[in-house]
Structures are given as structure tokens and as C-alpha cells.
């Protein structure tokens, strides 16, 4: 195949793969992109949720464990 044909085929295959995967879930989340939907503030990024979740876990986990340990002693 000539380079041009290879390029055309590659483009075609890429487009095809893109189309079939357009709605298929499971693609990695693009964390730096703005959030989807209407609940967001303009400045919010998808990755903000992961960061907030980690922070929340650091705060909540010790409290929950202490609370649960206290209740079983009773």
C-alpha cells in the first residue's frame, strides 16, 4: 500500500473506532476538562470530585472508626 492509502485507511479505522466507542462507557475520565451538566460552576473540573473525595475520606475515616469502636465497647 502507498503511504497515502495507509493514512486514509488509518483515518477510516480511527473514525470507525471513535464512532462505535462514542457512547460506550469505560473511557478514562478526562480530569482536567470542565464538568458536564448544569449543576457545575463554570470553573469546576471533573477531577475536582476525586480530590474532594480523598479529602473527605481523610476527614471522615478516623471519626467513623473511632465512633464504631466506641459503640462496640458499650
Amino acid at each position: 500500500m502507498k503511504p497515502l492509502e495507509i493514512a486514509a485507511l488509518a483515518t477510516f479505522l480511527a473514525a470507525g473506532a471513535g464512532a462505535s466507542a462514542a457512547d460506550a462507557p469505560g473511557k478514562p475520565m478526562k480530569m482536567d476538562e470542565p464538568m458536564h451538566g448544569e449543576m457545575k460552576k463554570e470553573s469546576m473540573k471533573k477531577g475536582d470530585v476525586k480530590k474532594a473525595a480523598k479529602k473527605k475520606e481523610r476527614e471522615m475515616k478516623p471519626m467513623i472508626e473511632k465512633e464504631a469502636a466506641g459503640s462496640t465497647k458499650k
Binding site: 466507542a21 462514542a22 457512547d23 460506550a24 462507557p25 469505560g26 473511557k27 478514562p28 475520565m29 478526562k30 464538568m35 458536564h36 451538566g37 449543576m39 457545575k40 469546576m44 471533573k46 470530585v49
Partner: peptide, 9 residues
């Protein structure tokens, strides 16, 4: 969701 349908976990 706060992400697109193709990014569903």
C-alpha cells in the same frame, strides 16, 4: 452526571 456518558465508570 458530572462527566460524559462515554466516561461512565
Amino acid at each position: 452526571a458530572f462527566y460524559s456518558e462515554e466516561e461512565v465508570t
